[in-house]
């Protein structure tokens, strides 16, 4: 073996002797393979969209947004309470996680960008994003449900807030980093305190990107089932307080998909269509409203 015979350069020099036809064909072959693989990943998505529209659309009337879910075996009704429940729980989760996430982001990007505390917060936040959503549910179950003795929207909100917190923190940090440091320098140069600089200069500038991150977190939380499955449970009725079992769109899909009644399964598809439309809508809205200002 010659020295360095494994490097790329020697490979190409040795390869020169092989027939160029083989090299050409293998190149073409791999390109085709790569394109086929890529196109193959589109098949499930298009199949999903097709089924959502085909099976979800027939039952989609205005009344599904206002009526209560039908009892098993019966026809009619909708999932108004589930939509309200999802919005309530995501709202609670946002109220709990947004202040913490944004203040934390301000600390790690404005006050102490290079401290070891900051490195730890960042690492923990990355690990929190990787925590399975069902664990958030188990945590909220232990913390809220076992203490209050009741499945509730509050417990669901707590579970979802754990899920949203790291996303809000990390996107807010990126938003703050995106503000040019010359803004801060100018503000300090004019004699502003750190608080004035952050509150009057940096935050207004970072706000659009922060809002975008928050909306992405909201969209993700709205689609989650596992955290609310055994914290908020489900309910056939309109919720009158946040301390009682509450319906959500995702749990409705899960429950109805397992029922042996055709109508309920149809309704699960309609709920899926509404849920996917909601999630995609929030995502697109976030991009449209805030992306241009972000760049």
């Amino acid at each position: 073996m010659r020295p360095n015979s494994n490097t790329a350069v020697h490979f190409f020099l040795n390869h020169e002797k092989k027939t160029s036809l083989f090299r050409l064909w293998s190149n073409q072959f791999l390109t085709v393979l790569c394109v086929l693989f890529s196109l193959f990943t589109l098949v499930p998505l298009f199949s999903l969209l097709y089924l959502l529209i085909k099976k979800g659309l027939p039952l989609l009337h205005f009344s599904v947004f206002t009526k209560l879910p039908p009892p098993p075996g019966l026809h009619g009704g909708g999932f108004g309470n589930a939509i309200v429940g999802t919005i309530t729980m995501v709202g609670i989760a946002t109220l709990l996680s947004a202040p913490l996430g944004i203040l934390g982001a301000i600390y790690i990007s404005e006050y102490a960008p290079h401290s070891s505390l900051t490195a730890t917060v960042r690492f923990i936040a990355k690990l929190l994003t990787g925590i399975p959503s069902i664990i958030c549910g188990a945590f909220a179950f232990a913390l809220v449900v076992l203490h209050t003795g009741e499945f509730s929207a509050l417990a669901g909100g707590v579970a979802l807030s754990i899920l949203m917190l790291p996303t809000i923190l990390l996107t807010s940090e990126q938003a703050l980093i995106g503000v040019p440091s010359s803004y801060r320098d100018a503000s300090y140069g004019l004699g502003a305190t750190p608080f004035q600089t952050i509150w009057c200069i940096v935050l207004p500038e970072a706000l659009p990107a922060m809002m975008m991150g928050m909306m992405l977190a909201v969209a993700r939380a709205a689609g989650e089932t596992a955290p609310v499955l055994f914290t908020a449970l489900f309910s056939q009725q309109w919720a009158s307080s946040i301390m009682e079992p509450t319906a959500s769109l995702s749990v409705l899909i899960y429950n109805f998909s397992a029922l042996p009644y055709h109508y309920q399964v149809q309704m699960a598809w309609t709920a899926s269509l509404v849920l996917v439309a909601m999630v995609t809508g929030i995502n697109i809205l976030a991009q449209l409203l805030f992306r241009r200002k972000f760049q």
């Binding site: 203040l103 917060v121 923990i124 923190l169 750190p194």
Partner: peptide
């Protein structure tokens, strides 16, 4: 405000342990 932000940052670290 700095103290408030510091508390938030520390709470995020403690959260994982708390869970």
């Amino acid at each position: 405000f700095r103290s408030l932000c510091w508390i938030a940052a520390v709470m995020i670290i403690l959260l994982l342990g708390f869970i």
